[in-house]
């Protein structure tokens, strides 16, 4: 009975995901697309759990269901003041077939490439090196020790994204619409401490179990979006967005400092001395989480935040 039920589970999940993906990319109504995509993210989290990847499920829950959902919904709110987009009504079959053929070719090539991968993977190699990593969770170990260079580049990408967004101009007004209900500030007030606790908790978990800087940062960033929608006043004011700039670049700066100091003491780039690995990773985790939270929050604002928040509603 159990195998039958788990097959049913997989099939249902796969069917729902495919249907939602189709709706997200081809529905006539734009709002339906966005909602389908949000639900798609929710079900992807279930798929990650099924594939024994709780790390990714956590990140998907925080980034996919939280930040991306908020990004898309508020972009939708800003888009609809413009003339409505035309739905994909004209469907030319030759074009569709050509596109599908192209997609299938790419897929086949990628599949062939994946097939050539060495079969056992790197699980044994990682397990062998874990004692030296300074943490107990293999994924955190890989992210912040063995492949720290990737992580540096990744926070770099996020920073670059925010720089690009800021270069487009100031945050469109209204930054936050008038509070529609007195229930919103109450909600934000009640949930904000939970967001803070959950962020610290995920950081703590990250050292020995699924969790870590990305998930923690994403949860805090989503919390920031929630409280600003609930009418909180942001603290980060000041000329030239001074505090913003410091916090946004904190993660990259710390990682670069760590990397450079390892070269200075004669190790290779990003090769921490074994004794200090735990401490270095701790610092990197905290700074990376703060930066990621701020970067995601800044990305939500769609532009450079004002130096003072005066002049925006309710502040």
């Amino acid at each position: 009975m159990a195998p039958l039920a788990s097959h049913a589970y997989d099939l249902l999940l796969a069917g729902a995901l495919l249907w939602l993906a189709w709706q997200a990319t081809h529905a006539a109504d734009l709002f339906r697309s966005v909602i389908s995509f949000i639900v798609f993210g929710l079900l992807m989290a279930l798929a990650w759990i099924r594939l024994d990847a709780p790390d990714i499920a956590l990140a998907e829950a925080a980034i996919g269901a939280g930040v991306t959902g908020a990004l898309l919904l508020s972009a939708l709110g800003r888009l609809t003041s413009a003339p409505a987009e035309k739905p994909a009504a004209t469907r030319r079959w030759p074009g569709t077939i050509a596109v599908l053929a192209l997609a299938a070719t790419v897929l086949a090539l990628l599949g062939a490439a994946a097939w050539q991968l060495p079969a056992p993977g790197l699980g044994d190699a990682v397990a062998g090196h874990m004692p030296r990593a300074g943490v107990d969770n293999p994924v955190t170990g890989v992210l912040l020790n063995f492949r720290a260079f990737d992580t540096l580049l990744e926070i770099g990408v996020l920073l670059l994204a925010v720089v690009a967004i800021w270069s487009l101009g100031p945050t469109p007004e209204p930054l936050v619409p008038a509070i529609p209900s007195p229930a919103l500030p109450a909600l934000g007030r009640m949930l904000w401490p939970m967001f803070v606790l959950a962020t610290f908790y995920l950081l703590w978990r990250g050292t020995h179990a699924p969790g870590g800087a990305f998930q923690a940062g994403a949860v805090l960033g989503a919390g920031g979006i929630l409280v600003i929608l609930a009418g909180a006043r942001p603290w980060l004011t000041g000329e030239d967005n001074g505090p913003w700039r410091w916090l946004l670049s904190l993660g990259v700066v710390t990682m670069l400092l760590a990397a450079l100091s390892t070269t200075l003491i004669g190790q290779r780039f990003f090769e921490y001395p074994e004794s200090a690995a735990a401490g270095v990773i701790l610092v990197l985790e905290i700074t990376a989480a703060i930066s990621i939270a701020m970067l995601l929050f800044a990305a939500y604002l769609n532009g450079q935040p004002p130096a003072r928040w005066r002049g925006y509603p309710h502040s």
Binding site: P185, R189, W192, P193, M194, V196, L197, V227, I228, P234
Partner: peptide
């Protein structure tokens, strides 16, 4: 942090 830091008045 949760007790002290509050973005609400």
């Amino acid at each position: 942090g949760a007790a002290i830091i509050s973005p609400f008045p």
